[in-house]
């Protein structure tokens, strides 16, 4: 099992392994999205107060969850790269940033569009919304900081520190709805209690969560592969792969 773990840290091995894995991940992502959208848009019931706007839930909640999930992955892999100086960990960390920023932006946009008919406003400086906006800025800061250095190793280490420090925002986002009086509702799914929603709606939400998760893995893999090519350009296997000969 440990050899498998060590191999994962080798860019060459990861590139070859992901070449075989990627088509499967794309198919699973596509199928999960189709199933999730059918369940969410066609078969699930509506909220008695919100009516059909509740269908925004199926794209908003997974986007928000994945925005936070991608940040945690980014910070943890950044920390692993920082402490043990593992190349692959930094590559994954850096690749997480833009896809995480996309999820966060989508959660903010869908939330704003959902807020208009439900709360009567697109935006309000409420604890949950503001802390989530900060998450988006943390992603932008991470990418800007990483781009500011010419030397990739320095950039990796500096950005990793920013990601680790910014991790403090994740529990703030999660508990913001309990600590402060906010307009945003609390969590509907919890590990410890029975979920307080209809079974059809829950099924649709869980399938969409899985779809977003696989989308994240697929997009991350594609970015990691592109990053590996650039960073390993001086190693023989990349040159062979790109030019097709061993010169």
């Amino acid at each position: 099992m440990w050899t498998w773990f060590y191999q994962l840290a080798s860019p060459k091995w990861f590139y070859q392994f992901s070449t075989r894995l990627l088509p499967w991940f794309r198919w699973i992502t596509g199928l999960l999205f189709l199933l999730g959208l059918a369940l969410g848009l066609l078969f699930s019931q509506v909220d008695y107060q919100q009516g059909n706007t509740v269908r925004i839930l199926y794209i908003h909640v997974p986007a928000a969850f994945m925005g936070m999930f991608a940040y945690v992955v980014m910070a943890i892999t950044g920390a692993i790269g920082f402490v043990w100086r593992i190349k692959m960990a930094h590559i994954v960390s850096v690749s997480c940033a833009s896809v995480g920023a996309l999820f966060t932006l989508l959660a903010l946009i869908t939330g704003a569009v959902w807020g208009k008919p439900t709360w009567g406003t697109y935006w309000i400086w409420d604890a949950r919304l503001t802390s989530f906006l900060i998450l988006f800025f943390l992603y932008l800061g991470f990418m800007a900081l990483h781009n500011a250095f010419d030397d990739k190793k320095t950039a990796d280490r500096a950005a990793a520190v920013l990601a680790i420090v910014g991790l403090v925002n994740i529990p703030i986002i999660h508990f913001s709805v309990e600590w402060w009086n906010t307009l945003h509702q609390g969590a509907t799914i919890s590990k410890f209690e029975k979920p307080s929603m209809d079974a059809d709606m829950l099924a649709a939400l869980l399938v969409m969560l899985a779809a977003y998760q696989f989308y994240f893995l697929t997009a991350l893999m594609q970015r990691v592969r592109a990053e590996i090519l650039v960073r390993e350009k001086l190693s023989g296997w990349v040159q062979k792969l790109v030019t097709g000969n061993n010169s």
């Binding site: 009516g51 059909n52 706007t53 269908r55 794209i59 986007a63 959902w114």
Partner: peptide, 20 residues
């Protein structure tokens, strides 16, 4: 029509579709 909320539902779905 989405019970009169079509604009909001389809706008947010469109943003997600284009973005993803």
């Amino acid at each position: 029509d989405m019970g009169g909320h079509g604009f909001f539902v389809w706008t947010s779905y469109a943003f997600c579709f284009v973005g993803l």
